[in-house]
Amino acid sequence: MPPLLLIDHHNGVPAYRQIMDQVRLQIATGMLPPGTEMLSTRALSAELALNPMTISKAYGLLEHDGVLERRRGQTLVVRETHGEEAHVGRIEPLRNQLIAAASLARQLSVSRPEALRLFKEILNDETK
């Protein structure tokens, strides 16, 4: 089952960026475990109705960043990561969301203790 990627063509975010973000997120959540074979550029381009150039740019950058690696010739797979690197990869999507939340907190003049209390409260709510 190939990863389900959804591209919004009209939000102004380059499609290659959307692919990269979604692949990273799926790896972080375990949807794409290490060793998973990615669809070929051609197949993904057909599936998403996107220019093959866009797919190869996203794949190329993910490979460059060490998220994917090439195996047995051309197949791209999810690279296995360990320790600190794996941890950073996993929390990165959350970190990005929190950067936006922190900016909003400053804009609303919400104090630090209040913002932290709110985040803890939400975390606790979710686990109930």
Partner: peptide, 27 residues
């Protein structure tokens, strides 16, 4: 148009005022 590019490597030059369409496929 995408299929022509994928299958034949065809270069496509397309003019359009329908920008919502254009941005789905152009690079």
């Amino acid at each position: 148009l995408l299929e022509r590019l994928r299958d034949d490597g065809c270069t496509v030059l397309v003019s359009s005022h329908i920008l919502n369409d254009v941005e789905k496929i152009v690079d």
